[in-house]
Nucleic acid binder design. Structure first.
Lengths: 126, 126
DNA sequence: AAAAACGTGTGATATTTTCTAACATGATTG
DNA sequence: CAATCATGTTAGAAAATATCACACGTTTTT
């Protein structure tokens, strides 16, 4: 699935194509960029070049706008989404620190203790 | 798989993008079109617009040329390939005519007859 | 060998596309 | 009502692309 993501993020489309694909005006597309909702690349001649991901996002933006959400709201949505993605990435990167390991082990011992002693008559099932 | 094919045949790329993607010069790309090896679409302003399939084909053409096949040869290859695709399509469209059915049945009967009589000592195995 | 055909590079010129920047505008919103 | 939002429109400049013609080194034909 890595190759596909690469393809989808390749900046190969000029604004004219994106206009047709999204039914947005050049003005709208540039404005959304100004609002940091998308960040198309630039080629050597300063022309904006868009990826399929950009097109997807523009279509999303259209939907959000149709739902009455304004630019600021959409930007906020993407910021949150971005944060969550980063967190997930970080979690994957270093799955367990030493502290995590110690904490987890300690928890297990605590549970062990609880299971073998201290079982009163109303000890919760399982 | 129909949606994917649609995407791959969408003419969305300008020649500049295709040049980068294929490492071919504009001259080469236009010449290959002149030789009917590709047929990019044109937008309202007469600019060539290419699909991902076009890019694939251009890369193929590059390979063929590197292998020493000339334009005419490549054109022939594609013509044959095209013919086979059409035939396959036709076969799928009307899988069996009445005549086919009768012929196939007759073949089976013939084979039956051969199996049950006429088996000499050297009858081929299977 | 001379001539012709191939595949490509290059240059000139015209047209189209895209860029930025500015001003305009109807619809909210404070 | 004044300000902000989201978009349209226009102007002028730069970039990308189109066609056409000529050049040129390599095969292929005659």
């Amino acid at each position: 699935m890595k190759e596909k993501e690469l393809r989808r993020s390749l900046a190969v489309l000029p604004i004219g194509t994106v206009m047709k694909l999204t039914n947005l005006s050049a003005r709208q597309i540039r404005y959304y960029e100004e609002q940091d909702l998308i960040t198309p690349e630039r080629n050597a001649g300063n022309r904006r070049m868009f990826s399929l991901n950009d097109v997807d996002r523009l279509l999303e933006i259209k939907d959000y706008l149709a739902d009455g959400i304004n630019m600021a709201g959409i930007k906020e949505l993407y910021a949150l989404q971005q944060q969550r993605a980063e967190q997930k990435q970080a979690d994957l990167a270093k799955p367990l620190t030493d502290r995590d390991v110690r904490r987890i082990l300690q928890d297990e011992f605590l549970n062990l203790g609880r299971l073998q002693s201290d079982k009163g008559p109303n000890y919760p099932a399982h």
